[in-house]
């Protein structure tokens, strides 16, 4: 198949001055914050919100909003990378780290090797707890110091910034530990099971 013709004068507007080692291959920096959702934005009232850690049929821990807010809070600044090729640098998030969630339910390590994140609206994504521990993952409730907007996943979303951003599930409500891996919403439809942007693992087979 021949190369597609170059469109004279067309430049990706996303090209900006970026140190090369900040951007994974194939990514472009954006200064806005694109919204991509697999369904309508759920309107969630925090009074009705709960978050749960589950193992098999057992609830390891569950918190309502007030309880969740009393858990140790961590603030991070990180880059995020969407599989649709935009990257956003130096984004600030606050929330409860996965490590602190495990501590809160009396666990020193994850009780199973796999996790499925379940969200309002039905979205799911699978991520190994090994990629959430050591400060790699959190349940975020603030973006740039303010409550996360519903269209960006508020009141709470999973944040796993070292993987493609579809893994940072919006409107997360439950992390279910699994003994065997299962594929989530996009992973079961051709997207990569793991999703490392630095290895450009966008699609199954990459």
């Amino acid at each position: 198949m021949s190369e597609p013709p170059i469109s004279r004068g067309f430049r990706s507007r996303r090209q900006e001055q970026t140190p090369k080692n900040r951007l994974p291959p194939g990514q472009y920096v954006t200064t806005d914050f694109p919204v991509l959702s697999a369904g309508p934005t759920p309107q969630i009232k925090v009074e009705n919100w709960t978050f749960t850690l589950q193992l098999g049929g057992a609830i390891l821990g569950t918190w309502n909003w007030a309880e969740f807010e009393t858990l140790p809070q961590t603030t991070i600044k990180t880059d995020i990378h969407c599989v649709t090729k935009w990257s956003k640098l130096d984004t600030a998030w606050q929330g409860v780290t996965f490590d602190d969630l495990l501590k809160a339910v009396g666990l020193s390590e994850p009780p199973a090797p796999y996790i499925m994140a379940h969200c309002d609206g039905g979205y799911t994504t699978n991520v190994p707890p090994a990629d959430l521990v050591g400060g790699q993952g959190m349940i975020a409730t603030r973006y740039e110091g303010l409550p996360i907007l519903p269209m960006h996943g508020g009141p709470a979303r999973l944040l796993v910034p070292h993987l493609y951003f579809w893994k940072s599930a919006k409107w997360v409500r439950r992390l279910r530990f699994m003994e065997k891996d299962e594929r989530g919403f996009w992973e079961s439809l051709g997207y990569h099971n793991y999703g490392d942007p630095w290895k450009e693992q966008r699609y199954d087979g990459d």
């Binding site: 597609p4 013709p5 170059i6 469109s7 067309f10 430049r11 990706s12 996303r14 090209q15 472009y28």
Partner: peptide
């Protein structure tokens, strides 16, 4: 419609 920039970027 598909546009291709010199660096291969497509929209």
């Amino acid at each position: 419609i598909r546009l291709t920039a010199e660096d291969g970027y497509q929209a």
